[in-house]
């Protein structure tokens, strides 16, 4: 077995009892799933529970005789569907609790203030690169978290999991044009939120994007 083995082959191998196959699957997908959960759930602690739960589902499914994942299906689609649905379930169960923090409570509120402050005083932030980076990161976090759920999930699946639009459409159960349109809304919203950051960061990042 080499490193190029497909997800499906690895999953099938794990189902056959090869723990190492699962380790490779985990290495391949843990980070994207984590970043998706982390941004989609807006809660690092919840995201950690969810991360375990997602992969435990995979483990469990591999032991079942009537497995949910079949050899013919794309593993990543299945995996990200689990991740998304667990996220949504959790959000629904905790809706009352979440409702209280919709517009940011505790640190989120502070962040929000900071964001606003940063927006106003962005040029000051640039004076100190470290501070600027930290602040910028917080602002980006916030901007993503502020996206509506359906835009956020599409944005994250595209940027973090790097799923093609067609696959995202399958996962979220929407048409491909709808997915593209949500993606575009999400990007435009982010651009609006991070416009001032963009003036600074863009110079480097945009170049790399263009060249790439």
């Amino acid at each position: 077995m080499d490193g190029d083995e497909s997800d499906e082959a690895l999953m099938t191998a794990y189902r056959a009892g090869e723990v190492r196959a699962f380790e490779r699957l985990l290495a391949r997908h843990e980070k994207p799933v984590w970043n998706f959960l982390r941004r989609f759930s807006r809660d690092a602690e919840a995201a950690e529970d969810l991360l375990q739960e997602v992969f435990l589902r995979v483990v469990k499914d591999a032991q079942e005789s009537k497995a949910a994942w079949k050899g013919g299906a794309k593993f990543s689609t299945w995996l990200y569907t689990i991740a998304r649905n667990l996220c949504i379930d959790r959000a629904r169960r905790a809706v009352h609790r979440e409702a209280a923090s919709l517009d940011g409570s505790g640190p989120a509120g502070t962040e929000s203030t900071e964001t606003l402050h940063d927006r106003i005083a962005s040029t000051d932030a640039l004076a100190d690169a470290v501070v600027a980076d930290r602040q910028a990161a917080r602002r980006i976090d916030r901007a993503i978290a502020d996206l509506p759920d359906e835009q956020r999930e599409v944005f994250l699946m595209r940027e973090v999991m790097e799923l093609p639009f067609a696959e995202i459409a399958t996962v979220v159960g929407a048409s491909e044009p709808t997915v593209k349109s949500r993606m575009r809304y999400a990007l435009e919203k982010l651009r609006g939120a991070l416009a001032d950051l963009g003036a600074v960061v863009i110079s480097g990042a945009a170049e790399s994007t263009r060249s790439g």
Binding site: E30, K31, V33, W34, N35, R38, R39, E48, L51, Q52, A136, A137, I140, D141, A143, I144, F155, L156, E159, V160, L187, E188, L190, R191, L194, L197, G198, V201, I202, A205, A206, S208, T209, R210
Partner: peptide, 21 residues
Amino acid sequence: GLRSTRAIARQVLDETPPASA
């Protein structure tokens, strides 16, 4: 503009998952 937004956003989307999990 969209490209630069992507580039900015992606800077925070590369976190390493917690080792405990």
